[in-house]
Amino acid sequence: MQDSIPCMAVDIFNQLVDAHYTPLFRFALSLTKNSSDAGDLTQQTFFIWAKQGHALRETAKAKSWLFTTLYREFLRGRRRAERVTALEDLGPAEADPVAPAVDVVTGMDASLVVEALQEVDEVYRAPLTLFYMQDFSYKEIADMLEVPIGTVMSRLSRGKAQLRAALARKETEARHKVVSFQNNPARKLS
């Protein structure tokens, strides 16, 4: 049957999906900022593998191939080359910006941390997310994003600075919501 993956490849495909669909979705979510789009992007990546990935001679490289393909598919959809260039021209990253304490971050809801991560400029967000997933070294990230190693280091530094600032804002907003809730007389009456 020519319309589907051969039986032997089905097992490999299933194994790949089980091993990588979760981190791929998380990476996609940080890029797209939308769960539905992230799901689509993850599926699209695996479908491309189903069509072309069997040509990979080394299955060990399937993981980085999947992440690279997902990122390329995302970029293809976005066509934001000019935006990326503009961001690269920004001045030096702010040195050690004020960041919430680690225990504050630990106490934050995961979705709030993801929101903060999604506020980081896209050009820094991709390497930063891959870094925090801890599955890839900076060298592998450089290969995936097709940028020099020094650029990855630089983007990690700037990305972390933006993330800290975003987390600080989120934390402040959350604190204000709690305060206003406590001071709301209507709520007291109810």
């Binding site: 020519q2 319309d3 589907s4 993956i5 051969p6 490849a9 089905v10 495909f13 299933n14 999906v17 089980d18 669909y21 979760t22 979705f25 998380r26 979510l29 769960s35 799901g39 993850t42 599926q43 695996f46 479908f47 593998w49 189903a50 069509k51 072309q52 069997h54 971050v105 630990t106 934050m108 995961a110 941390v113 993801v114 991560l117 997310t129 925090y132 997933m133 801890q134």
Partner: peptide, 26 residues
């Protein structure tokens, strides 16, 4: 990193990928 690891994947995504993969001609 620990927070990222808590991101939940939508229900049914795995099944959708597997089903789509089966009908994707290589």
């Amino acid at each position: 990193s620990a927070k990222l690891a808590h991101i939940q994947v939508p229900a049914g995504l795995r099944e959708a990928i597997l089903a789509g993969g089966r009908v994707t001609a290589p």
